[in-house]
Design a binder for these strands. Structure first.
Length: 328
DNA sequence: AATCCCCGCAACCGCACACTC
DNA sequence: AGAGTGTGCGGTTGCGGGGAT
C-alpha cells in the first residue's frame, strides 16, 4: 500500500511561514472553514501542502490558542497527567484549554523532562531513578561540595542553598534505598498502610532518612518528621521539594492496591537501636551516605511496587480522576 | 567584536487509524 | 474486502536567538 507524502509534490514551499501566508490562511478559513485540507492550499492561494496548512492553523493561527509561558497550574497539570497518560500529548492538551499538543510536547521536552532528570527522577515513570550509575555523578558532586566546605572550613552558604543541598542529599539517599528495595535485589519488603492510607515502608524509610539528616544537620527543618507520609507516598509532582515553586496540589491521600489488600501494622522493619527511652535506626555513618540498615523480616506481600511508590502511583490511574481527584 | 555553543520552538516527517467508495 | 484518502498523533529536525568564551 502506502502513499506518497503530501509534501513531496514539487514546488511546494516548506519551512517557516510568512505573515502573508498566515494572512491568506486565516482569511480563507474564517470565510470558508478549512474543509478538505488537501484542497485548501489551492483554494486559498497558498503554495503549501495541506498538511502544512493544517499544522500551521491548529498549532499557531487558531484564534483560541493561548500563547505565552505556562502557568504554575498548567505545569502541575501536565506533570500530573503525564504521570498517568504518558506521552499522550493530545490527551493532555485536551485538559489544557488553548494549549496545543505540540506546545505541551515542546514544553515537556525542553523544561519538565530536564527538571525531573536533574532531580534524579525518571521522566517516564515519575519515580526516583534507581540506577545508581546514572546518579553517581550527581552524588559525587554533592559529596565534593560538602568535603570542600568541610576541608576549608568555609562559612556556611545562605540558608536556602544549605537547605537545597540537604534536600538533594536526601533525595540521593532515597534513590539508594530504592535500589535496595527493588525486587531484583532479592530484598523483599512489605507494603502496608497506616491509617491515613500512606504506604508504610517508604514512609518509614523517609522518616529514618529525616532522622539521619537531622542528626547530620541539627538545625534543619524536615517536614516529613511531622508528616511521615509527605514525601515518598506522593507522586513526583506532589513532592514538597520538587518543583518547589509550585503551589500545593489538592491533598488527597493515595490509595494503593497493596494498602487496600493488606492488614495494617505490617511494614518494613529496620534494625533499631534502643537508647534509653528512644529507639533509633542503626545507621553506620559514612562520609558519603549513611550505610543502610539491614532489612529484616519476610515479605508478606507480593506487591509489584518497590518502596511503596509504584503501587501508590498507579492507584491513581484506577481509582482517581486525574483532574478532579474524585474517586471513579 | 567575533565566534561558538546551547537551547527553545516551529515545523516537518512518517506512521496509524478511521472513513469512504 | 480492500484500496485510496483524510486526519491525528508522536518523534525528530533544524533554524534563530541569546548567552558564553
Amino acid at each position: 500500500m502506502g502513499r506518497s507524502p503530501c509534501c513531496d509534490e514539487n514546488g511546494l514551499k516548506k519551512g517557516p511561514w510568512t505573515p502573508e501566508e498566515d494572512e491568506k490562511l486565516v482569511q480563507y478559513i474564517q470565510k470558508h472553514g478549512h474543509g478538505s485540507w488537501r484542497a485548501l492550499p489551492k483554494l486559498a492561494g497558498l503554495n503549501r501542502c495541506g498538511k502544512s496548512c493544517r499544522l500551521r492553523w491548529t498549532n499557531y493561527l487558531r484564534p483560541d490558542i493561548k500563547r505565552g509561558n505556562f502557568s504554575e497550574e498548567e505545569e502541575q497539570t501536565i506533570l500530573h497527567l503525564h504521570s498517568i497518560l504518558g506521552n499522550k500529548w493530545s490527551a493532555i492538551a485536551s485538559h489544557l484549554p488553548g494549549r496545543t499538543d505540540n506546545e505541551i510536547k515542546n514544553f515537556w521536552n525542553t523544561h519538565l523532562k530536564k527538571k525531573l532528570i536533574q532531580m534524579g527522577f525518571d521522566p517516564m515513570t515519575h519515580q526516583p531513578r534507581t540506577d545508581l550509575v546514572s546518579t553517581l555523578p550527581y552524588l559525587l558532586a554533592l559529596v565534593n561540595m560538602t568535603d570542600i566546605m568541610d576541608h576549608h572550613h568555609l562559612p556556611a552558604w545562605d540558608d536556602q542553598a544549605v537547605k537545597l543541598q540537604a534536600e538533594a542529599v536526601q533525595l540521593a539517599k532515597l534513590q539508594y534505598l530504592n535500589s535496595l528495595l527493588q525486587p531484583t535485589t532479592s530484598l523483599n519488603t512489605t507494603n502496608s498502610c497506616d491509617q491515613n492510607g500512606f504506604t508504610t515502608s517508604m514512609d518509614t524509610i523517609n522518616l529514618l532518612n529525616s532522622m539521619a539528616d537531622l542528626k547530620e544537620n541539627p538545625g534543619m527543618n524536615y517536614p516529613q518528621l511531622n508528616n511521615p507520609g509527605s514525601l515518598a507516598s506522593q507522586p513526583l509532582h506532589h513532592h514538597p521539594t520538587m518543583l518547589s515553586h509550585m503551589p500545593d496540589p489538592p491533598q488527597v491521600p493515595f490509595r494503593s492496591q497493596s494498602c487496600l489488600n493488606s492488614d495494617q501494622g505490617q511494614g518494613t522493619n529496620f534494625t533499631m537501636i534502643s537508647q534509653g527511652d528512644h529507639t533509633t535506626p542503626d545507621f553506620e555513618s559514612s562520609s558519603i551516605l549513611p550505610s543502610m540498615p539491614p532489612l529484616v523480616g519476610d515479605a508478606t506481600s507480593s506487591s509489584s511496587s518497590y518502596g511503596g511508590i509504584s503501587s501508590s502511583y498507579w492507584s491513581e490511574l484506577f481509582f482517581e480522576d486525574p483532574i478532579t481527584h474524585e474517586l471513579s
